[in-house]
């Protein structure tokens, strides 16, 4: 495929999730961070401070709307009210793009307010692909869907998660937000190889990376967003950059939120890790080319 249209997923650089404890700091000091991602639902309100803050931040920074309630995999009908409000927010804020998760969040008219994994079956694939197409029509744009951390697998899964993600992106013509930490967490929890995951995800479909911290519960890793990014996830991020290229990257931190400077430093580190990964990749390619040239000579 040809990849994304020009301007669909612009090269924003290295951003951080904007959370309420940092509103004042960001508005007062205008830090040099490249862009912000916000949780869409926090701004699907009628008025008051949240929308005021977002409007003022948007005046100076690119914003990405990252949702947690689309529930794209649920067997419930799509929430038309939610989509209408999200579209209205997008018209007001003009986000660089809109993303949500490959998951389901409720059934029977009720919400768990969590990101539950799907069975990776042909039935689920057909169901989700059709809904993604309808959401993209309603929002009048391509969306990016994120791989979630998961703690259970289903007996009815016939595909690997990465094969499901690749097939969904192709069938629904959507983008992938690759959460590197979630790949790492789920690989531990389900004992798959992170290399298999990365090589199974189509390069031309990935629009963005997420990085975050997790916590270790011995029997499983939990995607808690309450720690710095760990060394293993930085290493996996470098591999992801080598495969997918230098893409907009975002640091998420949602609990025990540190000072803004700590978060900003993580974004700068992502920039440095990505640059080094590209240099190493280029050096590797050059060395390989030199060996091949010697071999031919």
């Amino acid at each position: 495929m040809a990849g994304f249209a020009s301007g669909e997923f612009p090269a924003l650089g290295y951003g951080v999730g904007l959370r309420p404890p940092h509103y004042g700091h960001v508005l007062e000091t205008r830090p040099t961070v490249d862009w912000f991602e916000v949780i869409s639902e926090n701004f699907l309100v009628a008025g008051g401070r949240p929308l005021d803050v977002l409007t003022r931040v948007r005046a100076d920074y690119p914003i990405v709307l990252h949702g947690v309630s689309l529930s794209i995999g649920s067997v419930d009908p799509l929430d038309r009210d939610y989509l209408a409000r999200l579209r209205a927010l997008a018209e007001r804020i003009e986000p660089a793009w809109i993303s949500d998760h490959l998951c389901w969040s409720g059934v029977g008219g009720h919400m768990v307010h969590d990101l539950l994994p799907l069975p990776y079956s042909e039935e689920a694939l057909a169901h989700v692909a059709e809904r993604v197409a309808r959401v993209q029509d309603a929002l009048r744009r391509r969306i990016a869907l994120e791989n979630v951390s998961s703690y259970l697998r289903f007996g009815e899964s016939a595909l690997s998660e990465w094969d499901f993600l690749a097939a969904l992106a192709a069938r629904a013509d959507c983008a992938i937000l690759l959460d590197v930490n979630n790949v790492y967490v789920s690989a531990f929890n389900h004992r798959f190889d992170v290399g298999d995951y990365l090589s199974g995800v189509p390069v031309e479909r990935v629009a963005q990376f997420h990085l975050a911290g997790h916590s270790d519960h011995g029997t499983h890793l939990l995607d808690t967003h309450d720690h710095p990014v760990c060394d293993e996830v930085w290493a996996l991020y470098a591999r992801a950059v080598q495969r997918f290229g230098t893409l907009p990257t975002l640091i998420e931190w949602d609990d025990h939120i540190p000072a803004f400077d700590t978060l900003h430093a993580e974004a700068r580190r992502a920039c440095a890790v990505a640059a080094r990964a590209r240099r190493d990749d280029d050096a590797g390619r050059n060395a390989a080319a030199a060996v091949a040239a010697d071999h031919r000579a």
């Binding site: 649920s74 067997v75 389901w104 059934v107 009720h110 539950l116 069975p119 009815e156």
Partner: peptide
């Protein structure tokens, strides 16, 4: 089957 799985987990 998807619906059955989701209802089971919800419960």
């Amino acid at each position: 089957m998807l619906a059955e799985t989701q209802r089971l987990l919800w419960r």
